[in-house]
Design a protein around this nucleic acid. Sequence first.
RNA 1: GGGCCUGUAGCUCAGCUGGUUAGAGCGCACGCCUGAUAAGCGUGAGGUCGGCAGUUCAAGUCUGCCCAGGCCCA
Length: 944
Amino acid sequence: MTVDYKDTIALPETDFPMRAGLPKAEPVMLKRWEDQGLWQKQREQSKGNEKFVLHDGPPYANGHLHIGHALNKILKDIIVRSQQFMGKDSLYVPGWDCHGLPIEWKIEEQYREKGLDKDEVDINEFRKQCREFAGEWINTQREEFKRLGVFGDWDNYYNTMSFKAEAQIARELGKFLMNGSLYKGSKPVMWSVVEKTALAEAEVEYKEHKSTTIFVRFPIKKAGEPALEDASIVIWTTTPWTIPANRGIAFGPHINYSLYEVVEAEEGSATEVGQKIVVADAMAEDVQGRFKVAEWKHLQSVSAESLEATICHHPFHDAGYPYDVPVLAAEFVTTEQGSGFVHCAPGHGADDYELLTIKHGMPIPDTVAEDGTYYPSVPIFAGESTYTSDGKTGTANGAVMRELAMRKCLMAKENIRHSYPHSWRSKAPLIFRNTPQWFVSMETNDLREKALKAIDDTSFFPETGRNRLHSMIANRPDWCVSRQRAWGVPLPIFVSKQTGEPLRDQEVLDRIFAAYEEEGADAWFSRDPQEFLGNQYNADDFEQVKDVVDVWFDSGSTHAFVLEGRDELKWPADLYLEGSDQHRGWFHSSLLVGCGTRDRAPYDAVLTHGFVLDEKGMKMSKSLGNVTTPQEVNDQYGADILRLWVVSEDYTMDLRIGKGTLKQLADYYRRFRNTFRWLLGNMAHYDASKRVAVEDMPELERWVLHRLQELDILVREACNKYDFHKMYRALHDFCAIDLSSFYFDIRKDNLYCDASDDPKRLAALTVLDEIFNRLAVWMAPILTFTTEEAWLERYGDSMENSVHLQQFPETPVSWNDADLAAKWAKIRDVRRVILGALEIERAEKRIGSSLQAAPVVTVSEEIATILSDVDMAEVSITSDITIETGDVSADAFKLDDVEGVGVVAKEAEGGKCERCWKVLPEITEEHIICNRCDEATSHLAAAE
RNA sequence: GGGCCUGUAGCUCAGCUGGUUAGAGCGCACGCCUGAUAAGCGUGAGGUCGGCAGUUCAAGUCUGCCCAGGCCCA
């Protein structure tokens, strides 16, 4: 009967389970953190430390979180936590963006379902419902964010609809008003006929749309050269309804044009024999076909000079359109489609406005009302609609074409499908419409220049973000900040009925701001305007602007009411972090508000991450069925898996996620978890009073400490550069390659079988302690739940304990030993050769366990010197080993990349020690355990 | 259509200023162990470096074009 020696060895003992059960365990941990007031504890503990402020870009309080939110908030959390671990007082105040069209639209939808009309409801009642809607989503999202392990001041979050915020947003706008940057202008803007509002660029989406295209003949009134008399210029447009607003024709200065005369017209052609037409040469053949001209004659080329000197009649010049239509050169004209001439309506197109109004100073006619119908003042077409209130094509196109045809000016008519702007909410096609709007000038107070300078002074992660933001600021037009909507911060502006100028009086503004602060921006609508105007002005002399400010101005002002508005924070922020789309959004608007009011950006650094795609790199969409939600991942795997995902890929590029990704992540996770588990199991035998001094440790232990020192440097550098992928890789590979398959594997024998007071064993335990304390804390920003679980397993679950109250441990520089590392790199090479040789023995069924082997290793003099004081049997986990110096024999096992090492595997002689399983000559039938084990167990017995 | 960006083994990534047979981890296959066991160890098979053309003695690395994908804009 053999003794069960298993009881005499120090196997790992731990309650830290191999299987994590994160979906159930994480909520319990969250509850614990809440109960112990971990956030407050952390604040108290780091009071007075240098602050690190990552200012939260507010998500929109509308709908459940998607995977992109998770990426964003987890990345923020990892940064905030890592800064805290590096000794900062790292403060994160989450926030929400609340105003704006999508919420307004949701409430309007509810109205429509009940058969109510929004316009019949009191505006503040409507705003109240928007406010409640946003408030509910804030609560929902807050819980969803917390579930991800995101740590912040969740009880004191900020939002853009608080009274304080609304007042401050108005104050910021007031600054632009007072310094003259804010001006009233008129511009064609993207306009939704359905929602009766101008739309921000971000509110527009482009999708395919069917448009009627027409070729229209403009008779020449004043010819630029004699040949052009009695001729016509033909334009092409995809928006027939804009013809009444036409005030010019554009041609390309580098395009060749010619005059053609119709010789023979086909049946049904709108042309007449003898008619003279100017078109681009490149389009002539195409146009001839479309016009059903059987034959025409090329009369002559027409120069740019001639064209520029030409003036046309408006097609309806006989019926109330007596305008001269000048022919103007413009670079934007192409010969891809049409006739080579572009009709220009400055009230209905950006290029048109640029060319006619900005460049040639022509007035903009107001032709279309907010509901999409022509104003009563428009001859012929008064009341006709461009688009109807439900987004369908209106009557205007037909009416215009009828009138053109009547005058023999409609030369051809077709349909095309092309990309066309639509409202992101109603999905209805948009028009460009000339409207009075409020603008922040990019030039009046050198805003553009200041912003570009501020970009130079900002750090970008990755660096490419600088260029992207720079080119956007350099090219952007003035900022249209007004919206004809209800749910937002009203522009605090009174316009003088007499002069048309906005009132610029700080006292009036201050009264408005005070009212906003007191009861929210609703005050603008609920209070008597005279209250704001005071005694100095008469409300009857002013028009109260009812527009609200662009929501980008709201979020662009968060730094004012959050960073400046809270004592615990600081202005500017250390970091703004958002998806790369925010170059156009929050980074951009914050920069402009910052520079316009404080002459610099509200951030020192900007970090951008990519977008989340499916496993194949395609955009996620419900129709493709490739959507992964954070809720799913939490329920199936746990938030720590999602957090691991964030660092497992390079967030500066687009990230991918799907079933396969998650499976792989679970494997990565297991490696970390089992490393912790094994460490914890061995720490059960750790005794702090028996720690071994570094100088008394074996080389192998000192090598591990060297690695820890290298990693310490790497981890801190990576955190400072926000390069968590690199850090994660280094730590993962450390666990897998250095620890599990090398150090742990070798030291199992010592830890399990050596006498409890054996110096080597105690040294190993000391090192395991150093490893655990670092690995747990280094990984804590990423695996927040798992590292805490491990930490509490090790140090007890007292409410005072938490890994998140630790700092990255100081790691002595003296642990660094490059010579030792180089030596052990060589040793590992030799080990690889030995292990390779054993594999052959295994294949030949001569051995199973490596302890059955006692290989003979032949090495060069140089390597022999290196190995002279190394126990290669221990390192190779064999029972014995012979190292010989000399030439490697031909039949020895070798590796191509390890020179001067040959191994002949031999079986170990003797019997198997019942306790440590080594095969040793001293083992006999009577003596079933080896001398080392004998001593170890007697020691044990003595201790008992 | 324009601006910015990405494309290296099944997956996630290395590969510096162009220079010997392109690397790693994971996964996979096979084997070992059965005292980290729904774990641990080892070995192995996987790549036209998105494609084409060019510059060069030499290109994954430089240039151009094309393809695929992403963000932003029109």
